[in-house]
Design a protein around this nucleic acid. Structure first.
Length: 103
DNA sequence: CGGTTGACCAAGT
DNA sequence: GACTTGGCCAACC
């Protein structure tokens, strides 16, 4: 079981309309390498099999959604996120506390 | 095998 | 409030 797969598994556990953070996922993996979570997601973001759009940083911001990765692709996910009940404004999660899924 | 990297985080400047 | 610094740790080269 790779570190990546662990991350993916946790991502799938996030229910619809909820989001989680890199930090929480990292802690669930029993590690402090928050970066690795994002690192893992980056490698797999092109696959709908992992709802990586439900994972944001600790302040409710969607990272890389505005510069690093393909904006269009991720922007589509941001919209999907809104559709699921998570309000997203300019790649930032509104009501972050309410939609935060703490496993 | 060693150095760099990264979709992070928190605290400091 | 934007930017820098130090720290974390697996994957990558």
């Amino acid at each position: 079981m790779n570190f990546f797969e662990e991350v993916y598994k946790l991502c799938k556990e996030i229910p619809r309309g909820k989001v989680s953070t890199y930090k929480i996922l990292a802690e669930k993996l029993n590690t402090k390498a928050y970066r690795l979570v994002g690192y893992a997601l980056r490698s797999n973001s092109y696959v709908p099999k992992v709802p990586c759009h439900r994972v944001v940083d600790s302040r409710g911001r969607l990272h890389g959604f505005g510069g690093s990765t393909s904006q269009r692709f991720l922007d589509r996910k941001a919209k999907l996120l809104r559709k699921e009940g998570v309000k997203v404004k300019d790649h930032k999660v509104i009501d972050f506390d309410k939609v935060l899924y703490k496993f």
